Amino acid sequence: MLKILIVGLLLAVIASLFSGLFFLLRDESRSRRVLHSLILRVTLSGLLLLIIGFALWHGDLSMNPTP
């Protein structure tokens, strides 16, 4: 369940990235949709980092130090 949430958030960040690019090329600075896309992307990325950090701290995820 946790890994599905992480992958879902990663896909949402990528979708927000491409929507911001689309709005940047399409609107030509006439709207604030690029700004809203950036705010959404930063918020989703922060949430993703918090979830990964909490999962590592709680022991649900573990790092693999072996090559």
Rank of each mutant, 00 (worst) to 15 (best):
G20M: 15
V42R: 13
G59I: 09
L21G: 01
T66N: 12
S29N: 12
G20A: 15
S16E: 02
L38V: 11
A15C: 11
F23P: 01
R32W: 04
L61R: 04
S29C: 06
L10Y: 02
M1C: 05
S62K: 14
L49F: 14
G59A: 07
A15H: 04
W57L: 14
L10W: 03
V13E: 01
L25H: 08
P67L: 05
L5W: 03
L47Q: 04
L47P: 00
G8Q: 09
S62F: 06
V13F: 04
F18H: 13
M63Y: 11
V13D: 01
N64C: 07
G59W: 08
S29T: 07
K3T: 10
F22H: 07
D60S: 13
L21C: 07
L44W: 01
N64L: 14
G53E: 06
H36W: 14
F23K: 01
L10Q: 09
L17R: 12
P65K: 05
L11F: 06
M63N: 05
L5Q: 07
I51N: 01
L5A: 13
S45H: 07
S62A: 11
L25G: 11
A12Q: 04
P67C: 01
G46M: 12
L44G: 00
F18V: 15
L21E: 02
R33F: 11
I52T: 04
V42Y: 08
G53L: 11
V7R: 02
V34I: 09
F23T: 03
L48C: 09
V7L: 08
D60C: 01
V34G: 00
R41K: 11
P67K: 05
V42H: 07
A12N: 03
L40N: 02
L35T: 10
I52M: 02
M63G: 06
I52K: 00
I4Y: 09
